[in-house]
Design a protein around this nucleic acid. Structure first.
Lengths: 225, 225
DNA sequence: GATATATTTAACCATATGGTTAAATTACCA
DNA sequence: TGGTAATTTAACCATATGGTTAAATATATC
């Protein structure tokens, strides 16, 4: 078997397939069980390496966790920057909303451990949480201010109803998060009631994005124009 | 100090101030740290009783947790039943939505550990979760079917736009949940951006209820009628 | 006062688990 | 081929923590 030279994180590292394997395994484990519930042995097993290697690379469970938090913050940061840069110059509101919702949902769909880990931090009031949020806010930069301005403009133009932007952001966040952690509920709901729920189809995410976008933009009421 | 006779739960119990104190402490601890992160010693401290007493009453950490899950399921069950019975015979859709949103938000506001504990169960894929969800669905009874029918009717009458009820329920749940666990984010957002956020005012919950109700019913778009 | 239960105290056990270590082995590179 | 880093093995330590126990004390009921 061909192996590459790798170095523990405390030293400069070049290649990193093994380190990466450990990080991925740890993410999954932390995502499922949280910092307290996670087991180093289980992480080692998932990564198909020896437990000693975890400490060789990351020193301790807490350190490993911190590295992962770092990478998560970075990933979200990058997602936001990318999304902002892809945004057309003067998007209409609906496009802006869809873009925002879409980028988060698609990102989290690829790495569901991220919302899981963040949610746990939130619930526990973790000490690392503020730093992560600050990094994310930092990535958004003037985003909130611009959003606020856009809102003011649209409101004054009578295009949208008087709306508290904070309430709106809060709501969109909730709708995005529930898309992932809510799955089990809806599967049970399906079993018990026979309701048609398509949580596992390919089109589900796209439908979800559309729904949130439309709910936010139009509401469910039919407008006679 | 006057004391009352109490008996451990394995025996029939009459009065229960001490048992109750332990249960409340445990709820808080489990809510903040989850089953794995919770410490029996910490629960004892919170309840201002001795650690031995926890085992005297509840035998083990897991048993204590199960008792709490039971009580949570029961409380939600009762909340739903109460809300359903208070519902007017033929409420208009907006009233029905407000009633639903309101009862959950006000219930959870009184006991924020409940959404926290449930969320963690959800994230971990806990074995007890299905039973709880089933109990809740059981409490709702024909609710979903009625909701579906109401929806169909309103849609056919052209009163609301074609809407996937599951997507809607999912969204409402997300918006309700985020009301509680999202707090820290918005406090940081406030610190960093100076955005006016009133997460701690008396009126916040009422505003939140109004917002969700209106978003779901009207959407944010101004309708020229 | 006698009895039963509630509660505290404090020492203690068992175990899971994070973490360490040293030696052996393997892979890579110069 | 020799040297260096990667990885495994396996034994081991230290500690936190869930859980137990037995005796002492308090409290209420009869």
């Amino acid at each position: 078997m061909v192996k590459k030279i790798k170095k523990p994180t405390h030293y400069p590292s070049v290649d990193r397939t093994t380190e990466q394997k450990i990080l991925e395994a740890a993410r999954t484990e932390f995502g499922e069980h949280g910092l307290d519930g996670a087991r180093m042995q289980s992480i080692a097993d998932r990564a198909q390496v020896n437990k000693a290697l975890l400490h060789y690379y990351f020193r301790s469970k807490e350190k490993l966790f911190e590295v992962i938090l770092h990478s998560i913050a970075l990933e979200i940061w990058q997602t936001i920057r990318l999304e902002l840069s892809n945004q057309p110059k003067n998007p209409d509101l609906k496009t802006a909303i869809r873009s925002l919702v879409s980028s988060y949902i698609l990102t989290f769909a690829k790495t569901p451990e991220i919302p899981a880990i963040l949610l746990r931090l939130l619930l526990t009031g973790d000490k690392f949480f503020p730093a992560i949020v600050e990094k994310i806010i930092d990535a958004i930069g003037d985003g909130p201010k611009l959003l606020l301005l856009t809102f003011e403009k649209e409101m004054k133009a009578g295009k949208i109803a008087r709306t508290d932007p904070i309430q709106l952001i809060m709501s969109v966040m909730g709708m995005i998060m529930v898309t992932f952690f809510g799955k089990p509920i809806f599967q049970i709901l399906q079993q018990k009631t026979g309701m048609p729920i398509a949580v596992n189809t390919d089109t589900f995410l796209q439908e979800r994005i559309d729904f949130i976008t439309n709910l936010v933009f139009d509401g469910i009421k039919e407008h006679k124009s």
